[in-house]
Amino acid sequence: MAHGNTNGNGNGSGNGGTHGGPVAARGAHYPSFEAPSVDKVMVEERAASFTKRSIKKETKVKGLKLAISMMDLTTLEGKDSAGKVRQMSHKARFPSTDPTVPSCAAVCVYPKLVPVAKKALEGSTVKVASVSTAFPSGLSPLVVKLADVRQAVELGADEIDMVIDRGAMLSGQYNAVFDEIAATKEACGEAHLKVILETGELGSYDVVRKASQIAMLAGGDFIKTSTGKIIPAATLPVTLVMLEAIRDYYYATGKRIGMKPAGGIRTSKQALHYLVMVKETLGDAWLDNEMFRFGASTLLNDVLMQLEKERTGAYQGGDYFSKD
């Protein structure tokens, strides 16, 4: 269903040719951004049903280790320093002395700190992700945002976590949102692109679903819920909406897009709920860190404590785990 520059919005809120940024118009060459609507009550009911799964014993241990392998260990504060990033990188590489506990998937830092992380993680499987595009608001001119991306890639980032222009999204300037993502993808070169929708600012699941569609069509390798700077950040239902968008995209194209919930996931139990949801929505092919990530900072220690509890049978105390 190509809609040309009518922008594929059946409700008329879409508007071809409305451009927020300085990107050259694509004329009639936009794909359809049409996305199914989402029923809030039902999707929240479904999301809650995943929390009813009973995850015990070996399933729990395996799930928690899987969760660690999917973590983007994150620090995104103004006070971040080289020391902080070095310590966190070490933790990402060696989360536990237990050799069966895997490394995290990546560390996620501001562009300036990419070289620090890169150096600290040399020779490991842990990737370096950088937030970019004037994170977290994204409200800089596109040229600045693209320069931000190119800089981060040049500094060694394997993955770029961009933010979309929420103002453009909410005011129906879908072409502009699309163009920015596409331009960012181009600027990424070989680096993987994660597109942060900042779902907490999008107001409804319908908009989340449409933004997911735009992000995937524009070339995002991953779609990601949140910056972590806005509450609510990741929730089960909003993640489910995005997983369903990924599924529809896969049905239509055969292409697998990754998913990264970020922010607000602090406990092992929560992490397992997400894994259950991924397992039962997208299946086996998404149950690895190529296709699914957790953006988190404090989650790792809770998971380590739970693993230790499963190993020893004793409930754990915070001071027995390193806080980096």
Partner: peptide, 23 residues
């Protein structure tokens, strides 16, 4: 059909048109 104007085929991504979801 997916009329993607910008998305380019990504060599590193699994293209899995022929198979369904596996649970």
């Amino acid at each position: 059909p997916a009329t993607t104007a910008a998305a380019k085929p990504d060599a590193k991504r699994p293209e899995s048109k022929a198979i369904g979801m596996a649970f």
